[in-house]
Amino acid sequence: MTAVLRTEDLCKSFGGLKVTQKVNLSLEAGARHALIGPNGAGKTTLINQLTGVLRQSSGSIWLNGEDISHLPPYLRVSRGLARTFQINSLFPKLTPLEAVTATICERDRDSLSVFDRRLFPLTRRRAEIDEAYDLLARLNLADVCSRATHELAYGKQRLLEVALAMAVRPRVLLLDEPAAGVPEGESDEMLAVLAEMPRDISILLIEHDMSLVFRFAERITVLVSGAELVSGTPAEIAADERVQEVYLGKHRG
């Protein structure tokens, strides 16, 4: 099996503080991989290194067999690495349709001429707009696609987070707590959306909601203090004593 996304001895430290320690993560094609760990385990720092917002101190990151460790973030996106944010990070004044269309135009920018990109009006890009609309429709956002994003309900904004990442047409999707802040009853909608994602997308899910993790993931990695504690199938993880200690042991102290 070839890994779509792989890290090799990834390390990151801020001053003397080691926040990522020799992480060797590997996502197979079509993976449904979850990354869990207590607060401060360095999950978001890891994501930021994968996307290129933070530069690793040492080690390397490989996407589809290419070393992307030193690529700027936007080029990693063009190569098919997309992410969502734990706290909504959207374009408040744009409509969902504008935001998703912008993403698609950006994805396809190399196939557009200078005139298409710079001088001809946006509505001439009907193919891109239609693709955006279809994507929004699939995520139940069609009826609000022409409203300003800041006017949308929180749940809808959460879905737009996913829509923006999907519009990149990613090979690898990093989901940073997609259900964060969504009320318990409504997280099923998110799970349904995640379950329907095509298998050619490999997914790395970071999540606190254990019921979501165990229903969705086929493989789980536990991160503690920036280092990989254990990786395995959900059953293996559930049975692992060390994991139980990390999650339950705190209560004994």
Binding site: V77, L90, F91, P92, L94
Partner: peptide
């Protein structure tokens, strides 16, 4: 306009 609204996200959509 996307960059003006949210630089972090603008980077994340490429």
């Amino acid at each position: 306009r996307a960059i003006r609204d949210n630089q972090q996200r603008a980077v994340a959509i490429g």
